[in-house]
Nucleic acid binder design. Structure first.
Length: 531
RNA sequence: GCAGCCGUAGCUCAGUUGGUUAGAGCACCAGAUUGUGGAUCUGGGGGUCCCCCGUUCAAGCCGGGGCGGCUGUACCA
């Protein structure tokens, strides 16, 4: 009864194989990002996939659930190790460990795989790539402003058009200051503050009314699931809602938003709003007005003022550098990671929509983010070390670029290698010699290594996307020749041939040349097909 | 984590009130063509019907439990 059972070939959930087209597209995209980062003076540095769990911070494994959120295992000395879940914490460890040897401020970049042991979803994987740039040792918000500008330049470098993205900027101190003004200070409100931040973070998805519900009693979604709210008093909700409203520009009085149907002279300062009927209007974005509006919401405290001053400084810096407010935009609803950001936070968002698989328009949303983490390096040292950085979600950005068919990823699909077919199995060395001649001329080439006959070999070459097949049987060998078959031209010719007899007789796009001319003639054929 | 939907060939799916040896299209392999990709025709390989337990003379189908997938929600450093 026990038939030999074959192993089920399968991949764990949340992990993905990547084919040659993906690899090529990713590499081109990474090169564009790297080029921009280096233009800004950042230098590469790489750290391993594995760190001591304690170095990564938040997730100290306990004995019951050591792999909650992060993949962890024990070293042979029983110390806990983890796969990194971002590139920031390992960088902080690296900088702290090499602090004296590094120039300060230290500017570096790195691309790499990170791992999260949590539920994957569309566009969310348990292994994915990030591409970070960080400035460590610079307390000035000029460092933050620069990172925002670099983020904008990077998106354009990979083919996102101006107007199709926005770098949103906020400041943790502003959020803290507003919560302080709402009476949410003190340790006893720590949990409530988290709930408030989470609610604000959902503005995009739930809208202002959803956020109000989460600030109050709670919210029940369509599926009937109930999310408990922060339980704030009406006047607290009012303050926070009007704060968040400044983000959406709902209170046009506050942000002094100007709306026009004319194409603006300075499009970089205007947000484009597209209606379903195809018409569009333009709304002027005024970063300084947003900051003023927040300042006037309540009796300001020191934390709030400090945060607003930093935002003002960033807004002024990017404006002076020619980045309009629709490109780098102050947005009080940006929250980002709850754990370690201490000052300015940024989020790179794509604003265009594309038709999804079901035909419904879908947005890609955030493709990157970052912020100031002044406390992270300091965990390893007796003194605080200011730092700020930005991270691009490589896989998500790639998916977006593929959706808009950016040239950087669609780039001419490279053809396969030239395949030398094997006619005489007892004369392998002579076939291999032909391959060697092609390779010596810099032409990608291989000998067919399977066991099948000529027809199958042709199908193999076809499936590999080979531009050219080389055929040398005993007849050709006797004459000192090879057949060169142009597979791309042949495929075109095949379309007008109906019968098999005709097909065989025609032998389209195939010619015989002396062996010594082979390389030269193959180069000719490759040249006709764009190299 | 919680809730809902779904698991039949590599893929997309059919499968009658529970009834013999579980099917189709596509894909794959081979032949028609001693040595030529496509099309056509012919043939072939491939299934623990997600798993286990139960009900029954009899389970792909009914019941219970588990596992896996999708969607929403929570979390997201």
């Amino acid at each position: 009864m026990s038939k030999p059972t074959t192993l089920k070939a399968r991949l764990p959930r949340g992990f993905a194989d990547r084919g040659p087209a993906d690899l090529a597209a990713t590499n081109r995209m990474l090169e564009a990002i790297r080029g921009t980062y280096e233009l800004y003076g950042f230098e590469g540095v790489e750290t391993p996939f594995v760190e001591f769990t304690e170095s990564l911070g938040k997730f100290l494994p306990d004995l019951d659930r050591p792999n909650e959120g992060v993949f962890s295992f024990q070293n042979d000395d029983e110390q806990w190790l983890s796969l990194r879940y971002d590139l920031t914490a390992p960088l902080a460890r690296y900088v702290a460990e090499n602090f004296d040897a590094l120039p300060k401020p230290y500017r570096s970049y790195r691309a790499g795989w990170v791992f999260r042991n949590e539920k994957p979803g569309p566009g969310r994987f348990r292994q994915f790539m990030q591409f970070d740039a960080d400035t460590v040792g610079a307390a000035t918000v000029a460092a933050d402003a620069e990172i925002c500008m670099m983020a904008a330049d990077t998106l354009e470098a990979v083919g996102i058009r101006r107007g199709d993205y926005v770098i949103k900027v906020n400041n943790r101190k502003v959020l803290d200051g507003i919560m302080l003004a709402a009476g949410l200070s003190g340790d006893e409100n720590a949990g409530r503050r988290l709930t408030v931040l989470r609610a604000i973070d959902k503005l995009d998805r739930l809208g202002i009314d959803g956020v109000r519900q989460l600030l109050g009693e709670g919210r029940r979604d369509e599926s009937g699931d109930y999310t408990k709210g922060a339980g704030l008093a009406p006047e607290q909700i009012e303050l926070l809602a009007s704060y968040v409203g400044a983000a959406q520009g709902e209170a046009d009085m506050l942000v002094k938003a100007a709306v026009t149907t004319d194409v603006p002279d300075q499009p970089d300062d205007y947000e484009t709003i597209r209606w379903e009927d195809g018409t569009q209007i333009y709304r002027r974005i005024d970063n300084l007005a947003v900051i003023q509006a927040i300042r006037s919401l309540c009796e300001p405290n020191d934390t709030l003022l400090e945060g607003l001053d930093e935002l003002m400084a960033i807004a002024t810096l990017v404006h002076e550098s020619g980045y309009g407010a629709a490109r780098i935009r102050i947005d009080p609803s940006v929250v980002r990671g709850l754990e370690y950001y201490t000052g300015p936070v940024y989020e790179a968002e794509l604003t265009f929509t594309v038709a999804g698989e079901d035909g419904q328009p879908m947005r890609f949303g955030s493709v990157g983010g970052g912020g100031r983490y002044d406390g992270l390096v300091g965990r390893f040292r007796s003194e605080p070390v200011p730092a700020t950085g930005f991270s691009i979600g490589v896989s998500r950005l790639l998916a977006a670029l593929q959706a808009i068919k950016s040239p950087i990823v669609t780039g001419a699909a490279s053809h396969g290698p030239v395949v030398v077919l094997v006619m005489e199995k007892d004369r392998i060395p002579e076939h291999q010699r032909l391959v060697g001649l092609l390779r010596a001329a810099g032409i990608r080439a291989e000998m067919y290594l399977g066991a099948s006959g000529l027809k199958a070999q042709m199908k193999y070459a076809d499936r590999r996307g080979s531009p050219v097949a080389i055929i040398q049987g005993s007849d050709e060998r006797a004459r000192g020749e090879v057949q060169i078959k142009d597979l791309i031209e042949g495929a075109k010719a095949a379309q007008s041939i109906a019968s098999n007899a005709e097909w065989k007789a025609a032998r389209p796009a195939q010619f015989s040349v002396p062996v010594e001319e082979m390389v030269e003639r193959v180069i000719e054929v490759l040249g006709r097909h764009g190299g």
